[in-house]
Design a protein around this nucleic acid. Structure first.
Lengths: 116, 116
DNA sequence: ATAATATGTCGTATATTTGCGACATAGTTA
DNA sequence: TAACTATGTCGCAAATATACGACATATTAT
């Protein structure tokens, strides 16, 4: 993206957009769901579960890791990726606050100039 | 590498990613917040409030409209953009379900093979 | 009708994302 | 040591996103 004028937006807007971008690909959504469903931290098996090459999956993992949504622990020959549950809770609250503001804000109604 | 990538992405994963992508730019986050804060539906004034050209803002509006997150009603010379509150509520629930699953799923702990 | 204004469209330039093969690195095992 | 395996890095191609000026269209006002 060409974020030439990113600085003009508020920190909140940028933060929400950043996290939304992390979830803006089904592979990354799938990875988070995978990590949540397995009761053990899986490593490269993630790639085997997704319809993408190992390289591409690794790339998606790096993107989630860059935002600290997931973390990786090296264990000998394998690497264990885990969800950062605390950060996910924070992010959930950010999204909740955003959606709540959006849905409770004054909507168009019969008392407004337009009614869509 | 083993290549057993037969599983495609689920409709849920694609839907969540699609909406997340719509929120993946601060300008679109700002637009939704703007529409929620104004108690009247504003039209091209949106462009005046954002640090982007009118053309670019229009482009972002089209993206939100393509997902039906916002709607536009032509009123003579101006156009009134409004939030689709009902859809936003649905989307909020999708995100809530996703985050709840992600945060309540088994996380790495001392009883697991790794502890990150 | 003409001018002014608001909105929408098109082309285009640039930046970013996505995807993957080929290669590199590092721990494990025979 | 040497083969093996899991992970990570690099470079490249294609697709998509971002941004905006120039132009087109439609409605209102003079």
């Amino acid at each position: 993206m060409t974020y030439a004028k990113t600085a003009a937006f508020t920190a909140d807007q940028q933060q929400l957009a950043r996290v939304a971008k992390a979830l803006a690909h089904p592979a990354r959504v799938a990875i988070i769901q995978l990590l949540a469903s397995k009761h053990t931290c899986i490593s490269g098996d993630i790639a085997a579960e997704l319809p993408l090459s190992r390289t591409t999956v690794f790339q998606h993992l790096q993107e989630l890791k860059a935002l600290d949504l997931i973390r990786g622990e090296i264990d000998g020959l394998t690497v264990c990726y885990c969800l950062n549950t605390e950060l996910l809770l924070q992010v959930q609250q950010q999204f909740t606050a955003f959606f709540t503001a959006a849905t409770t804000g004054a909507a168009c109604g019969p008392d407004d100039s337009c009614a869509c």
